[in-house]
Nucleic acid binder design. Structure first.
Length: 265
DNA sequence: ATGGTGGGATTCCCA
């Protein structure tokens, strides 16, 4: 009988504000490993009790005050591997772990990049592009271990990854320069995009809807900003990949929804 | 039509 492993990723937009729906997600989907982004909490006051009570005894935390912050929470043993600073500015945007079976998980929160898609007018946009270039250098030099690269990439690369390709061409997250750079990152290690592996374009597939819409579901102006990529050997072990869209309507929701993949080893 | 909402630590930054 195969070993089943469920791995989820979710930009939670404050793990403290969202602790009840994180618990709801664990109860409903029963992931073995949960990668969180935008935890917005320092490690010393991370709300670990709920996770431990539910059997998630391995908490790999990389937080900072106020912003950003990532974590990998697991009920199977995980061992911290690395925490890259791809912006070289000290922000907590990555943590990586190894599993006993040799699989590596890299959890990343790519900078949003501000509002103006021009690195001279908007330094945040340049920092986002530089972050991705450093990721490409890292990815290009990776060894051949089975690896999962997941998180909030803050880029919706395909036309069908946004509600309107034409209307978002100048909107940070879907500009041609960002889509090109994400394409080079994907090519740099032959990464398989599990979202589109299981739900090929042009199927509708979104993971984020703005808080600013009166009715997010009615307007449905979504974008696919959250991704799970794997090396080809691992993609062959994936049996399903889903986005949990009802989570966008849960009480006090994140503006992102969880994504979850089931692997059979 | 250039707003709108939400979280976090403090009057405003970031998403």
């Amino acid at each position: 009988m195969a070993d089943i492993l469920r791995i989820a990723s979710w930009n939670i937009n404050s793990v403290r504000a969202r602790i009840d729906i994180v618990e709801q997600f664990l109860a409903q989907e029963s992931p073995d490993i949960l990668c969180l982004q935008e935890t917005k909490v320092i490690d010393s006051i991370f709300p670990a009790a709920m996770f431990r009570q539910r059997g998630y005894k391995h908490l790999i935390l990389h937080g900072q005050p106020m912003h950003h912050g990532v974590a990998i929470i697991s009920r199977v043993p995980v061992y911290e591997d690395d925490r890259f600073d791809w912006q070289a500015n000290g922000e907590a945007r990555h943590v990586g772990v190894r599993l006993d079976n040799g699989v590596r998980i890299e959890n990343v929160y790519v900078p949003a990049g501000g509002d103006i898609p021009d690195r001279t007018l908007n330094p945040k946009f340049g920092q986002k592009l530089d972050f991705l270039e450093r990721m490409i250098a890292w990815s290009s030099a990776l060894d051949k271990k089975p690896t999962i690269l997941t998180g909030d990439f803050n880029i919706a690369p395909l036309e069908s990854d946004v509600w309107s390709h034409k209307q978002l061409l100048d909107v940070v997250s879907h500009t041609p320069v960002e889509c090109e750079i994400l394409g080079r990152l994907q090519a740099s290690n032959d990464w398989v995009d599990l979202g589109r592996h299981f739900h090929p374009a042009p199927q509708r597939l979104y993971t984020w809807w703005s808080y600013r819409a009166k009715d997010w579901a009615a307007s449905d102006r979504g974008r696919r900003l959250d991704h799970m990529w794997t090396t080809p050997d691992l993609a062959a072990k994936a049996v399903s990949h889903r986005v949990v869209e009802p989570a966008r309507s849960w009480t006090k929701p994140s503006d992102h929804i969880p994504i979850i993949t089931e692997f059979a080893f």
